[in-house]
């Protein structure tokens, strides 16, 4: 076997090893702990607002699950996609079930 083949196999082994170690490290330190889950549960159970505070520009993205189609529409009829985040986050399907048909 040539030296470069060893190099290749070594490269793949190192890379796989690295992936596994990184995965293991993240899994053991960064996974959601039971404590955090409990805290989230307490908080959500009392506040009752389910959505994440990742996007705060508009109500219908920040509180996406509890908004209605007309508050999405409210900014301006032509500007449905006024905020870039609305390209990323889809409105809740029960707000409007299919394109063109509005069922509030």
């Amino acid at each position: 076997m040539a030296r470069s083949t060893f190099f290749l196999i070594g490269f793949f082994i190192c890379l796989s090893f690295f992936v596994v170690v990184e995965f293991w490290y993240l899994y053991s330190t960064r996974s959601m702990t039971q404590e955090a889950v409990n805290k989230k549960a307490l908080f959500i159970a009392h506040v009752g607002l389910p959505d994440l505070s990742l996007v705060g520009e508009t109500r219908y993205v920040r509180h996406r699950s509890l908004s209605d189609v007309f508050s999405i529409f409210g900014d301006s009829p032509e500007l449905l996609e006024y905020f870039p985040s609305t390209f990323v986050y889809h409105y809740a399907p029960y707000v409007s079930t299919s394109a063109g048909r509005v069922e509030p």
């Binding site: 702990t33 955090a36 506040v47 994440l52 505070s53």
Partner: peptide, 14 residues
């Protein structure tokens, strides 16, 4: 709020 729930509570005022 605790850092553990910052994703939920970051912009909240209770």
């Amino acid at each position: 709020f605790n850092a553990d729930i910052s994703l939920q509570a970051n912009d909240m005022i209770l």
